[in-house]
């Protein structure tokens, strides 16, 4: 009587399923590596793999806060447009306002954070669904980027700026350090802090989380702001890598980011997910792109594959989850 037995299935099921999903993914990744490696001998070289790490950084930086957001049951479709806006403002404030470049970088990071903050503010205060809010700002931020730039690009940055995007640091692409540090911080924050556990609580049952006294609105405001900030950082890395700014930069990023997160086992319905899964998802998407490119598939066809992967991985995840729930 005095002791209420904990439901044993609920306690064991979640880690079991998480383990299953990540082992499955890692196995697929391994098979993909071997197959692609045997198809093309340039694929499995250290140079190529490090270069792929370089190319995945811009999407990876955004995928981390996106994991947080999707765990809470939200979504942010405006990230690609924030990348465009921040890239334009970086170039514009440097060239036209005459900001010194470090200040311009700070300014564009600030704008990114502000753009994410606006998303979070309207989502939490006005209760606009995240999907609709970020579709609206997807249009708005891209529109601002187009309007401010007037389709002009900015080039000719000082040489030191290109270090972030093009040079190596201790034998590893410079921006990959940024991504690695961000991954460690995000992983610890999600797994080992109250902030991280609050995200799961919101995703599992927002009303219960609210009644438990968790700071639901503040937490959401933080993750959407973080998403904007990381999109800003991604813009800086991107501009440094490609040496120019254009208003269409980052368009379509939302597809890669969401595909990586969902492929990594984060449930689009909220409540389930991990940073490590997202990292594996990122690796898979980038290796898929590279492997296809090396076997002669053009860039446009790879987004067909990523779109298919996005739908199929959601299908598999949701049918696994349904089986787990015994529906």
């Amino acid at each position: 009587m005095s002791e209420i037995p904990l439901p044993p299935i609920a306690r064991r099921a979640a880690p079991w399923w998480l383990l299953r999903h990540e082992t499955m993914l890692a196995a697929i990744l391994l098979v993909a590596l071997v197959v692609l490696g045997s198809l093309n001998d340039r694929f499995l070289t250290l140079d190529n793999l490090l270069n792929q790490g370089r190319l995945t950084t811009e999407v990876g930086l955004i995928a981390l806060p996106m994991t947080f957001i999707i765990i809470t049951g939200g979504i942010d479709l405006s990230v690609g447009s924030i990348v465009g806006l921040c890239a334009i403002l970086l170039g514009y404030s440097w060239k036209s306002f005459g900001f010194p470049l470090p200040l311009a970088i700070g300014f564009s990071l600030l704008v990114g954070a502000a753009a994410g903050f606006l998303n979070g503010l309207v989502i939490t205060r006005v209760k606009v669904p995240p999907l609709i809010m970020t579709i609206a700002t997807l249009a708005l931020y891209r529109g601002l980027a187009e309007g401010i730039s007037q389709a002009r690009s900015v080039r000719g940055y000082p040489q030191w700026f290109y270090v972030i995007g093009q040079e190596n640091l201790f034998g590893i692409p410079a921006q990959l350090w940024l991504l690695l540090i961000a991954i460690v911080i995000a992983g610890i924050a999600l797994d080992r802090t109250t902030f991280g556990r609050t995200l799961y609580a919101i995703g599992n049952n927002e009303i219960a989380a609210r009644f438990s006294g968790l700071p639901v609105d503040r937490t959401k405001l933080i993750i959407y702001t973080l998403s904007g900030l990381m999109a800003g950082l991604s813009a800086v890395v991107l501009v440094s890598r490609v040496t120019t700014t254009r208003s269409d930069m980052g368009s379509g990023y939302e597809l890669d980011v969401i595909a990586a997160v969902v492929l990594g086992g984060t449930s689009i319905f909220g409540g389930v997910g991990s940073i490590w899964g997202t990292v594996v998802g990122l690796a898979m998407i980038q290796l898929l792109k590279d492997g296809l490119a090396l076997t002669g598939v053009k860039g446009d066809a790879t987004i067909v594959v990523i779109g298919t992967v996005l739908i199929l991985s959601t299908l598999v995840a949701s049918s696994l989850q349904r089986r787990r729930d015994g529906v």
Binding site: L255, I268, D300, I303, V304, G307, T308, I311, T314
Partner: peptide, 23 residues
């Protein structure tokens, strides 16, 4: 029927159609 959110399905289809058309 498979109960996948419309945003995921249509985002995936967007890239399938767009990439398919250009390639």
């Amino acid at each position: 029927y498979l109960r996948i959110p419309a945003i995921v399905v249509t985002l995936g289809m967007l890239s399938i159609l767009k990439g398919g058309l250009i390639s």
